[in-house]
Write a protein that binds this DNA or RNA. Structure first.
Length: 419
RNA sequence: GGAGGGUUGGCCGAGCGGCUCAAGGCACCGCCUUGCUAAGGCGGAAUCGGUUCAUCCGAACGCGGGUUCGAAUCCCGCACCCUCCA
């Protein structure tokens, strides 16, 4: 949820944010008038309750006939209080509904527009020139005995796969390298639940416009997470923290990929289930932007270690998630597609998630304040695509980036299996 | 699936219809005492909302209803946690 006080003080900033996202700005005025009604209702109910409270004390002391008269008056008061409270609850419910529907206020420097309106911040590394026709990751993966899509489909359906042999080892190596980098930099490694309660899923902002992306277990009223951001955000729900926290979550991630029929149907680029190591930070709001830059820095360090060319983009407002104020993606060069594809994504959610999940810290005066939350990717299954394709050697073998070798028992080359 | 027990402030924990505007302790913040450490004394704040320049008012004892002039306390639902049984 966005900060109501900030909306009152500067409604135009929120309207501008809605415009930048390409969304309805009239909700801001609806919100303000609901807020007005709520505050009026609270004042009325408060005053009546105060009266009733004083009155109750008189009754306690009164005797005989006087008491009878007071009791009658008290009944009337009680009815009035009840009505005023009902009004208050209705006004609050109305406000909350509007309030929850509004996405986070976008950062003023985030580009306006939709998916294609991103701004490229920089390129790192040059796409390699091949003196042979490069294979795509699936052809390579099959030759290496690393990926089995057909049996994935047999067992679980489309967009499911098995990582086999060296493929499974490669993924573990990659995720372990990410976990090492995270712990070296002060993150606490976490293996998280992947099924969460509705209020946690709602709190992280995934049940808004992107609800159709989320798997739901109706029989148990639980949701399968699309990222460990969800359990890591929920980890400190309803708590008051005494300092900043950094976690690296390792989990499987589940996505329905509704509406992406026909897109990326080949290989493991877009799948229903994958693994990920995700950074998650709780910091003071004034430190959030600096933290965002740090998260991006660690993502780039990972990309440097696997030696793939990439670019960094500043995602446009319309392509931000509900919770994000700003988002940077790192996109790696995928030779078979001659295109950059997203490998990491880091979002500054400012106080949006924390306000919903009621996560606070104590400031220097001991007053509870809402924290800011941020997240960013360190490695996912999809990275295998970029690694295989960029480091292929023409005979179907793949060079292992030097930094990854210690996590693969020192292996320098992945060789095709003989049939 | 069945049977019990529980849910009170940052934490522990008392309270079971109006001396609770939630005791007491821990932790926290001041001040004082003791040469340092450890400890002790006195005081304070504490959660949410409304309002104000400081104030004041209201709410809050898992959540939602009900009984009552008045509910942490009584009644009814629900959720969650724990233990035991299958």
């Amino acid at each position: 949820m966005i900060d109501l006080k900030a909306v009152r003080e500067n409604p135009e900033a929120v309207r501008a944010s809605q415009r930048a996202r390409g969304e309805d700005e009239s909700v801001v005025d609806a919100l303000l008038s609901a807020d007005e009604r709520r505050r009026a209702a609270i004042s009325r109910a408060d005053a009546l309750r105060g009266e009733q409270k004083l009155f109750g004390k008189q009754v306690g002391r009164a005797k005989g006939e006087e008491r009878e008269a007071l009791l009658a008056k008290g009944k009337e008061l009680a009815a009035e209080v009840k009505a005023a409270e009902a009004e208050q609850h209705a006004a609050e419910a109305e406000l909350t509904e509007l309030h929850r529907a509004i996405p986070n206020v976008v950062h003023p420097d985030a580009p306006e527009g939709g998916e294609d309106d991103y701004v490229v911040l920089k390129h790192v590394g040059e796409p390699r020139e091949f003196d042979f026709e490069p294979l795509d990751h699936l052809d390579l993966g099959v030759k290496l005995g690393a990926i089995d899509m057909e049996r994935g489909a047999k067992v679980s359906g489309s967009r499911f796969y098995f990582l086999t042999g060296i493929g499974a080892q490669l993924e573990l190596a990659l995720l372990n390298m990410a976990a090492s980098l995270a712990t070296e930099n002060g993150f606490t490694l976490m293996i998280t639940p992947t099924l969460v309660r509705p209020e946690i899923m709602a709190g992280t902002g995934f049940l808004g416009q992107h609800a159709s992306e989320v798997y739901r277990l109706r029989d148990d009223d639980l949701y399968l997470v699309g990222t460990s951001e969800v359990p890591l955000a929920g980890y400190h729900a309803d708590e008051i923290l005494d300092g900043e926290r950094r976690y690296a979550g390792w989990s499987s991630c589940y996505r329905r990929e509704a509406g992406s029929y026909g897109k990326d149907t080949r290989g493991i680029i877009r799948v229903h289930q994958f693994n990920k190591v995700e950074m998650f930070s709780y910091v003071r709001p004034e430190d959030a932007e600096a933290e965002h830059a740090r998260l991006l820095g660690w993502e780039e360090e990972m990309l440097g270690r696997v030696e793939v060319p990439y670019r960094v983009i500043d995602t446009a407002a319309g392509d931000l998630g509900t919770s994000a104020a700003r988002k940077f993606d790192c996109e790696a060069w995928v030779p078979s597609q001659r295109a950059y594809r997203e490998l990491t994504s880091t979002s500054n959610c400012t106080t949006f998630q924390a306000r919903r999940l009621n996560i606070r810290y104590r400031d220097e005066n001991g007053k509870p304040q809402t924290v800011a939350t941020l997240n960013g990717t360190l490695a996912t299954t999809r990275w295998i695509v970029a690694i295989l394709e960029n480091h292929q050697m023409g005979d179907g073998s793949v060079r292992v980036p030097a930094a990854l070798r210690p996590y693969l028992g020192g292996r320098e080359v992945l060789e095709p299996i003989s049939r």
